[in-house]
Computed example of a mutant assay.
Amino acid sequence: MENENKTLNYENKALTYFSLLWGIIYLAIGSLQVLKGVRLLPDNFISANLLPPEIAGGLVLAVVGAVYLYGTIEFSKGSSAGRAYAYVGITLSMLFGALYFLTFTADLINARALFADGFEQWTPLDGFKPALYLGLLSLAIYTGWEEKFRVQE
């Protein structure tokens, strides 16, 4: 019984740090995207390829970051509900990553296979947005840590 509590405590600690780190990253990148989108930051602040000025995309990232940070708060209270927030956060990360991957794939097809109007200057770097690369990283983390994200013991 004591060994199980130590293992659970270690897993909660690892998920706490993960939730805190991922929450800060998502909230920061989302906030920067929104600030660029409303023109409070110059367009050349960070390359538009790495951080495009998107208000809606930035708000989505900020909400995902808030879910992770709320999980961190729950963990700090000693509540096991933080595991559920970490699970929901990673699920949202992968879900929005998949959505942006589909958008990236559609743009790639438009540019390379269909030679659609408006895609003459499009490059794959144009479609590589924060939700996509954060979603891919989240998928890699989930794959490696799948047992830590189990809500039920």
Rank of each mutant, 00 (worst) to 15 (best):
E2F: 05
N3T: 12
E4L: 14
E4K: 13
N5P: 03
N5C: 02
T7L: 15
N9R: 12
Y10M: 08
E11R: 15
E11S: 08
N12T: 03
N12K: 14
K13L: 13
K13G: 08
K13E: 10
K13V: 05
A14S: 05
T16W: 12
Y17E: 03
Y17W: 15
S19W: 07
S19N: 09
L21F: 15
W22D: 00
G23T: 04
I24A: 13
I24W: 10
L27P: 00
I29F: 11
Q33D: 02
Q33T: 01
L35A: 15
L35G: 08
K36F: 11
K36A: 08
V38T: 09
R39H: 14
R39S: 13
L40A: 05
L40C: 02
P42R: 05
P42Q: 04
N44T: 11
F45L: 08
I46D: 04
I46F: 12
N49G: 10
N49E: 14
N49I: 05
L50F: 14
L50D: 09
L50N: 08
L50Y: 12
L51S: 09
L51N: 06
P53Q: 07
E54T: 04
E54A: 03
E54Y: 04
V60E: 08
V60H: 02
L61C: 06
L61I: 01
A62C: 06
A66M: 10
Y68P: 02
L69V: 03
Y70S: 08
G71D: 11
G71S: 08
T72D: 01
I73K: 13
I73Y: 15
I73V: 15
S76M: 13
S76W: 10
G78I: 07
G82Y: 11
G82H: 10
G82T: 10
G82E: 12
A84Y: 06
A84C: 02
Y85N: 11
Y85M: 14
Y87H: 08
Y87W: 14
I90C: 01
I90P: 00
T91G: 09
L92Q: 06
S93V: 00
S93F: 00
G97V: 02
G97S: 04
L99E: 12
F101Q: 04
L102E: 10
T103M: 12
T103P: 00
T105R: 00
L108T: 07
L108Q: 05
I109V: 14
I109N: 05
I109D: 02
N110E: 09
N110T: 01
A113P: 00
A113C: 05
F115P: 00
D117A: 08
G118H: 07
G118D: 06
G118Y: 06
G118K: 04
E120V: 07
Q121R: 11
Q121L: 11
W122V: 07
T123Y: 06
T123E: 15
L125Q: 13
L125W: 12
G127H: 01
G127T: 02
K129N: 05
P130E: 00
A131T: 07
L132D: 01
G135F: 03
L136M: 12
L136K: 01
L137Y: 05
S138L: 01
A140D: 04
I141K: 03
I141V: 15
G144P: 10
G144N: 10
W145K: 11
W145A: 15
E146T: 10
K148N: 15
F149A: 10
Q152I: 13
Q152L: 13
E153K: 15
E153D: 10
